[in-house]
């Protein structure tokens, strides 16, 4: 399908007084959002009480201590062929902003990253999400994180088999790289013998899917309002996860286990209120054990990820491997000004 996809993203120093060095306040692409027509669906399933909390912090924080950063992006999608499915549009315009607030004390820190998107075509893609909103305490012997966070597991780039803590934000990007914030309590202990992480995940977030007008969608719309769960606790099911990582010379090793609500739904066919056929997501209870291996050999990185998953139909294994070759160090080339 031919597609023209323009994306423009810009880092914006949101509060020049707090930032060191030069700041570019003459941003040509500053966007006035006006009254955002956020729909109910756009709020997703995020606990709403986080938002007032965030606003409180936003205004109550002492002006001398915090640090703001973030970005604003605009995106245009133009499809040259007629849509396949009823309701889809040829073009869409989207605006997104992701400010970040950070404050550090001596042995702890607070981070808040809200995310806003307005999409001209798909109301489901107009959303407000809290990507991160957490307090981190690191007295020395351990690290304790409480709140909404993003946690990445894995070594390969082609697909992320082992990565399971955060739900995928499929509306935001069809490549599954964008994630929703996950409420959690995370205890991490980093020692000579390795790093041990324990996660309690008290609230489940459903996967986002494009709405009827969205172009990058399945033939039947996924009706997220009718989502079903194997567990009677539904979204309140308490999930947990463990991970152990260790570096042994040129080897990096990680073992992990997750027990709880699958981030990948299975689908049933049903109908919506108006009788149209839709996919209904079904979230199973699963157990997933993961292995990550990485070997550094001169300029090469050799990578392997493997999982064993049970609870979603028949138990199964999957693995993915890859390599990375770095002829030059990762660091950037100078930009002459």
């Amino acid at each position: 399908m031919p597609e023209i996809h323009l994306k423009f993203q810009r880092q914006i120093p949101l509060s020049p007084p707090f930032s060191k060095g030069e700041t570019d306040t003459k941003d040509k692409n500053k966007i006035r959002t006006g009254d955002p027509p956020l729909t109910k669906g756009g709020w997703g399933d995020l606990p709403l009480y986080f938002f007032p909390l965030f606003l409180l912090l936003f205004f109550a924080s002492p002006a001398t201590a915090g640090e703001w950063s973030g970005y604003i992006s605009s995106e245009a999608r133009l499809f040259l062929q007629d849509p396949l499915h009823e309701g889809q549009r040829e073009q869409s315009l989207a605006l997104a902003a992701q400010p970040e607030y950070y404050h550090a004390w001596d042995k702890s820190s607070f981070t808040a990253v809200p995310f806003f998107r307005l999409d001209s075509a798909d109301t489901k893609r107009s959303q407000l999400d809290i990507r991160e909103f957490f307090y981190l305490w690191y007295p020395g012997e351990f690290e304790l994180g409480i709140g909404i966070r993003k946690v990445f597991w894995g070594v390969t780039e082609s697909q992320h088999l082992v990565d399971i803590i955060n739900q995928t934000d499929l509306i935001e990007s069809p490549d599954r790289e964008e994630k929703l914030g996950q409420p959690m309590v995370n205890l991490s202990i980093d020692r000579e013998w390795g790093t041990f992480d324990f996660f309690l995940l008290p609230y489940f977030r459903e996967r986002t899917f494009p709405g009827r007008k969205g172009r990058l969608r399945t033939a039947f719309v996924v009706d997220t309002d009718q989502a079903q769960y194997e567990s009677s606790d539904k979204q309140a099911h308490l999930d947990y996860a463990l991970r152990f990582t260790r570096t042994l010379g040129d080897w990096d090793l990680a073992l992990s286990h997750f027990q709880g609500t699958s981030r990948d739904p299975s689908f049933k066919i049903g109908t919506d209120a108006s009788g149209k056929p839709v996919f209904i997501p079904f979230y199973d209870q699963i157990g997933q054990t993961g292995l990550e291996l990485q070997l550094v050999a001169e300029a090469w990185l050799w990578k392997l990820e493997a999982i064993h998953r049970s609870g979603q139909g028949k138990s199964y294994q999957a693995w993915t491997g890859g390599f990375e070759y770095t002829p030059l160090p990762v660091f950037l080339k100078p930009k002459w000004t």
């Binding site: 001169e298 300029a299 030059l328 160090p329 990762v330 950037l332």
Partner: peptide, 18 residues
């Protein structure tokens, strides 16, 4: 990306940050 990435260090003669 909120990610820690292992990198290869064999290229000692490569430029540090350009």
């Amino acid at each position: 990306l909120k990610r820690v990435k292992r990198i290869s260090s064999s290229n000692k003669s490569g430029s540090f940050m350009g």
